[in-house]
Design a protein around this nucleic acid. Sequence first.
DNA 1: TTCTGCTGTCGATGCGTATCGACTATGCTA
DNA 2: TAGCATAGTCGATACGCATCGACAGCAGAA
Lengths: 334, 334
Amino acid sequence: MVTSRDVAREAGVSQSTVSYVMSGKRPLSDDTLRRVDEAMTRLGYQPNSRARALAAKRSHVVGLMIPLSPRIEAASLMRFIQVIASEARGHGHDILLVTEDEGASGMQRVIGEQICDGLILMQVETDDERIPVVRDLKVPVVVIGVPGDAESITCVDADYRSAAELAVDFLAARGHRQVTFVDWPSGLRQRDVNFIERFDAGVAAAAQRSGIEVLQVEGGAHRETIGRAVRSGLEASNYPAFLVPDSGVQAMLQESLMLEGRRPGLDVSLIGSGEDAPQQIVPLTTIDFVPNVVSARAVELLVAGLDGRRELDGQVHLEVPTITERESTIVVPT
Amino acid sequence: MVTSRDVAREAGVSQSTVSYVMSGKRPLSDDTLRRVDEAMTRLGYQPNSRARALAAKRSHVVGLMIPLSPRIEAASLMRFIQVIASEARGHGHDILLVTEDEGASGMQRVIGEQICDGLILMQVETDDERIPVVRDLKVPVVVIGVPGDAESITCVDADYRSAAELAVDFLAARGHRQVTFVDWPSGLRQRDVNFIERFDAGVAAAAQRSGIEVLQVEGGAHRETIGRAVRSGLEASNYPAFLVPDSGVQAMLQESLMLEGRRPGLDVSLIGSGEDAPQQIVPLTTIDFVPNVVSARAVELLVAGLDGRRELDGQVHLEVPTITERESTIVVPT
DNA sequence: TTCTGCTGTCGATGCGTATCGACTATGCTA
DNA sequence: TAGCATAGTCGATACGCATCGACAGCAGAA
């Protein structure tokens, strides 16, 4: 193993000078700098992260707690993980996986044993047992999702309320006077995840504002349920519009529509979400809940906290979703 | 922070004794053991992993390199990750994420800087740039998938050949004389992933052995392609059987069949694979490629290598898949 | 009795880095 | 010319633990 001491000897300086070359915390002559740099490359020096972590009390490792049973589709979850990992890397940090089956004690372990400098928690629910534990941890933690009691917890999430408003406004602007809101699966409603309530509130607010009538129908990945949803929607208006935030059912819904002889983008509007929406038979106009923006924000907040650049503010940070228009929405003739 | 020195003082012993209590590497009197244990719980001692790693030259962290664009469905990938993480935990190790966008140099970084003790690589392809690098790393590495040149590389994968044989034999045993093999998507064939060849070989071998005729048709997630596949299959036999190893298309295929007025398990056999197969309209008989067995095996091999219990053997370890019979397969009347 | 071997404990040292205080040389101000 | 700040470097120490060698006490063997 090549140590900083070896580099020092090779460059004819002291070990501490090598350390200062790396950190830049003391002024150095150009000559010394060059000689040390050369010695490093010549010897193929790589600093030992263990020694570094022990001495500096910083491991540059961030714990990421991933959900056991994802509420969201696995593809989206993977997306989060990928973005978080590479963003962290961009800030000089690595990601340690903490699985949810360890429970809250997993957090205490990785922090107590000082494996990680900080934590990111994914998919925090309204009544999440991890939240009180987070408050007692003496390290920076950023949470994805919004717990019921967010007091002094730094959270990041998509702004589901705005998302709903954007979608309803989008339909209103194209002349729809009615929208059929195909609900999230009931499992989600039972599990206490408040982004649903926020979405609901957005739908209601936008509908009221623009005078649109909302028909809320049951969702869930059953053919019959979706069939019923479609039929109700078609009955409700001459120019039906479907708002389907749950990406799991939109393929089925689209097929169901076609069985009824309707086609999104031709005589029906359909707004979906998710990664596979562009690949549907009719590419869907979608709500993008900007998972990569949310992930990047979480990392950035945490790293800023770790580097002491900015104290974690304990606030809720909501990232604004966007609507991408594709071919599944129509303009109602006036 | 509570250190082992604090515990020692509290228990009235030396720091080294505390260390020996934890490692068990020297005999200790029951009395000392008890006093130290009590002192630990009283003070809430948690050993500092940084110091531990520096002194012992072992961090108990394993690097896991995850693919950027998963060949397999994301849900399956998440499954791998979850199992690997919790198995590793069971062996006292944590998982550090290394994303593929860092390339092979990512491995050199986490090993060179001694962040990890060893590595697991996922989704290794036939001609994988990481393999030569792995050979030069001086640490244990286990690879999931089988590279073209597996010389001195410890690999774990599902036995795709056996899987294919099992499936064909299964159909033969139920009286089918013909099977329509709906191919993997062409993207997979282009990307050099040799499990496909192994599967092909298994199909051919079993077909020959049991005198079954195989019709290989194009796969891929397009409605028309699948429709064509279905029609070809239906024409080919009075008692058609479909073998559909790619889990991405099976829902579509099943619908396609029903459009033709056929129903798996009634007048057609259909063998699929993957997590969502039991939730299909007709629950599918599936090939289970035992991802959790493969993951667990990879971890176990690696950890055995790390603990010095067993040298990594540089061999290919193939785990035998299973067939789970559900409702989508028929018995052909004789 | 004396020697041998084992049990149980301790002190000292090292792991590789970061950082603090101190020191020298240099150029500058008064 | 004395005094002084600054740039540039070094030596020593600490981080918290694992481990090695040493040693005391005690049993049994010779």
